[in-house]
């Protein structure tokens, strides 16, 4: 009886403690949400503040962004297109590679796998200047293609797919071969559908990485109407603050779709974002 009481006391303390921690961690996002209803001139002057005048809250920032911020919506479109391209292409190619490394026995297989691990360890930032030179040389600067290209065969995804495909039932492949199916048919019709959960996890990882990608698009995108959301929003971060309405409401509209996706597909977000490690 006594120990139970002590334990429930501890449980109470720990749970309240975690509620506080969660609140502190979520505070910036809650602050952003509330501030997006404040007049942008106040926001620029006061920053995000505890002393909010609730009678001043209004929808002006959102009205403005939906009616007058054409450039914001072109950034939004660019981000959507680039993320969609990245997801489709990188899933298609990375899953092929990972699958082959897992199910086929061929010369050089181990070498390729070691190369995948090696590329995982080379920071992109070190290759960015020569890659940028290459894009300039190929006259690809300021195109979707330039942004997407370095992400198409993502080593993280190859590694993840390879680990996942190792657990696929290869007996199915033999059965299909006897039925006269080609290796490609086996892959696209039988094995790829079995890789569904891993595809979902990687779609989220690649999509989020591309949605939030900054440094590489900053290098290769030049004109305002080609900017992605992070690049475009960053240009509004000036001390003069003449565009804080777009900046603040635009940030909210950038985060909200992701948070909604997260609520519905939490399991895949978790698998995707922690795919760098844990177990082998």
């Amino acid at each position: 009886m006594d120990t139970n009481k002590k334990n429930s006391g501890l449980t109470w303390v720990a749970t309240v403690g975690f509620a506080l921690i969660s609140l502190i961690i979520l505070f910036p996002i809650i602050g952003l949400l509330i501030s997006s209803f404040r007049p942008s001139s106040d926001l620029m002057r006061d920053g995000i503040t505890f002393s909010i005048d609730f009678s001043q809250l209004n929808m002006d920032n959102y009205m403005y962004i939906f009616q007058q911020a054409a450039s914001y919506w072109s950034w939004y479109g660019n981000s959507l297109i680039i993320s969609a391209l990245t997801i489709v292409l990188s899933l298609f190619f990375s899953s092929m590679v990972g699958y082959a490394l897992a199910v086929y026995d061929f010369k050089g297989r181990n070498l390729f796998f070691v190369l995948v691990l090696l590329i995982l360890m080379i920071p992109f930032e070190i290759l960015m200047l020569p890659l940028y030179q290459m894009m300039v040389g190929a006259q690809l600067v300021d195109s979707y293609f330039a942004v997407v290209l370095p992400l198409i065969v993502a080593p993280v995804a190859v590694f993840f797919f390879r680990q996942y495909a190792t657990g696929l039932p290869t007996a199915l492949m033999d059965a299909a071969r006897i039925d006269g199916s080609t290796e490609y048919g086996i892959y696209f019709k039988i094995m790829l559908p079995l890789m569904g959960p891993s595809l979902a996890a990687m779609a989220i990882l690649q999509g989020l990485a591309s949605w939030n990608n900054f440094l590489w698009p900053l290098l290769v995108l030049r004109s305002n109407d080609m900017f992605t959301l992070p690049i475009g929003l960053a240009t509004l971060l000036t001390p003069y603050g003449n565009n804080y309405d777009i900046l603040i409401a635009g940030s909210v509209l950038t985060i909200i779709p992701i948070v909604i996706l997260f609520i519905f597909f939490q399991r895949y977000f978790v698998a995707g974002l922690t795919s760098g490690g844990v177990k082998g």
């Binding site: 602050g31 920053g47 995000i48 989020l208 939030n212 992070p230 929003l233 950038t254 985060i255």
Partner: peptide, 18 residues
């Protein structure tokens, strides 16, 4: 986990204002 969903730019903008 939710902060991991934001970009550094949006997160940084919030912190600049805070």
């Amino acid at each position: 986990f939710i902060p991991a969903l934001t970009s550094t730019i949006v997160g940084g903008m919030i912190f600049r204002l805070m």
